[in-house]
């Protein structure tokens, strides 16, 4: 039996993992992104997030997102595998970003903190593997080495 591992589930799991394994980096990510309201659409799924200084909270509705992101699962994996850069993805319209320049700059800083946590987290490779193969049975996901501890 297979169940699809949705982007929203991946994001929620990844935030919980960062908070557990690298609480300082999780706190830094929240500090950089608060008090933003961010809507992220990946393919047909939209995730809405409210950032406070201490935590990120998924919500059902956002009246006025400060940053809106729209992309696809393939575009995200292309970034992770260095087949594309953030700049290329934006220029080639595989990554759409909408917000004021200040809010987008803060979003970038927060995203970098999230990524710094991701590459240091012992549990992130398994999460990413599920995201990479969303329909795979969890026990059969192949190992992947996105994590790189020094």
């Amino acid at each position: 039996m297979t169940t699809e591992y949705r982007f929203g589930t991946f994001l929620r799991d990844s935030f919980a993992t960062l908070q557990r394994e690298l609480p300082d980096i999780y706190a830094e990510m929240c500090r950089r992104l608060a008090p933003q309201d961010i809507a992220i659409t990946v393919d047909s799924e939209t995730v809405r997030l409210k950032f406070a200084r201490e935590a990120v909270l998924p919500v059902k509705r956002l009246a006025h997102p400060t940053v809106m992101v729209r992309t696809g699962r393939k575009a995200i994996l292309d970034l992770i595998d260095a087949r594309s850069t953030l700049l290329d993805a934006a220029v080639e319209e595989r990554l759409h970003l909408r917000g004021s320049p200040d809010d987008l700059a803060r979003f970038y800083d927060g995203l970098m903190a999230y990524l710094h946590g991701a590459v240091r987290s012992p549990s992130f490779p398994a999460l990413l593997q599920r995201f990479r193969y969303p329909a795979a049975r969890s026990g059969k996901a192949r190992r992947r080495n996105e994590r790189i501890h020094p």
């Binding site: 970034l79 992770i80 595998d81 260095a82 850069t85 953030l86 700049l87 970098m112 990524l115 710094h116 590459v119 080495n145 996105e146 790189i148």
Partner: peptide, 12 residues
């Protein structure tokens, strides 16, 4: 070439 490739996001 930067390896592992994911690190190109942090050091582009």
């Amino acid at each position: 070439l930067k390896v592992p490739r994911v690190m190109a996001l942090l050091a582009p």
